[in-house]
């Protein structure tokens, strides 16, 4: 259970990191290491080079922008968890981040690392999907911006090429008074979720829901927005029948199954957790003037 031999690099500047990532053969980027190190210790990976991003300047921090919050890719989950800005402006992320691993792993794990690892049940990709977050991806050719739904290609497969580095994630803010809910089930707290649901809703002046976002984790190969569920909610008053229809739409998403957790069980969890997340989100909506 020791990592295979590799060459370790700790660049200080982003240009150096990009050049290393673009030119070194069989290189892996190291962010917080909370997923990469287990994979190395299990020898599921055998990179020739590991490029540590921890000392690269300018990759960590939480910035308030007009209508959005930009979080550096190397920002540790601990900083997000205790950020007053995140609690105030991205309450869904603040709630979800407490479900990520344990205190001891959140102290090291990073937002960008989780998005690039792209585990199907991970919470941070779910929130990025739920909020239509946009990723800044730097390469020798410059920086491109990619929305989360285009970034999450398939099971643990982000749309990122060799030599590209995710540098920041911008979360567009939902208007004040929106409601949010995050529900998760795992056999033990801190384990990977079997199923998790993220919900956002916004009421208009007449009390009708004008916007809704429903995202499943652990059901499909990546975090999955359920537009059928969102359609059930928009225009409704968030009444029980609308919520039940939305939850049923979540149960209809084709679910992964394996020897321990059959697909039907995931679908039942998706229905139940969607119901709870939406109930909570709707209860949290404030009156809009």
């Amino acid at each position: 259970m020791k990592a295979p031999a590799f060459r370790y690099h700790a660049p200080r500047r982003l240009e150096q990191a990009i050049e290393l990532a673009a030119t070194l053969p069989n290189a892996r980027l190291l962010a917080g290491g909370q997923s990469l190190l287990p994979m190395l210790n299990f020898r599921l990976l055998a990179p020739e080079h590991v490029v540590d991003l921890a000392k690269v300047e300018g990759l960590a921090g939480i910035d308030e922008l007009p209508g959005a919050v930009r979080i550096g890719a190397m920002t540790r989950q601990r900083e997000i968890e205790f950020s007053e800005v995140v609690r105030r402006r991205l309450p869904l992320l603040a709630e979800a981040i407490r479900w990520v691993g344990h205190r001891q792993t959140r102290n090291r794990g990073t937002l960008g690392g989780s998005l690039c690892h792209l585990d199907p049940s991970a919470e941070q990709p779910m929130v990025a999907m739920a909020m239509d977050a946009v990723l800044d991806i730097a390469s020798p050719k410059g920086t491109r911006r990619l929305p989360m739904h285009e970034f999450a290609l398939d099971l643990m497969t982000p749309a990122i090429e060799d030599g590209e580095i995710v540098t920041a994630v911008t979360f567009p803010q939902w208007p004040e008074g929106h409601g949010w809910g995050f529900e998760e089930f795992a056999r033990r707290h801190g384990d990977y979720a079997i199923v998790a649901v993220a919900a956002l809703v916004l009421r208009d002046g007449d009390g009708r829901l004008s916007r809704a976002s429903v995202t499943l984790g652990g059901v499909a190969a990546t975090a999955r927005r359920v537009t059928d569920a969102e359609r059930c909610l928009v225009g409704s008053r968030g009444e029980p029948a609308a919520v039940a229809a939305a939850a049923e739409a979540c149960a209809q998403v084709p679910a992964m199954g394996d020897a321990q957790i059959p697909a039907g069980y995931r679908s039942r969890l998706a229905r139940t957790l969607a119901q709870r997340a939406l109930d909570r989100a709707i209860a949290r909506t404030g009156a809009v003037a």
Binding site: M1, K2, Y8, Q34, L37, N41, R78, H102, T105, R108
Partner: peptide, 23 residues
């Protein structure tokens, strides 16, 4: 040695962390 059991927990810059998940 893969970050589950916590036996190796130490402080890194004042915060608890898995020493097995750190080079």
């Amino acid at each position: 040695e893969h970050g589950v059991c916590g036996a190796c927990t130490v402080w890194i810059d004042g915060h608890s962390a898995r020493a097995c998940l750190t080079l």
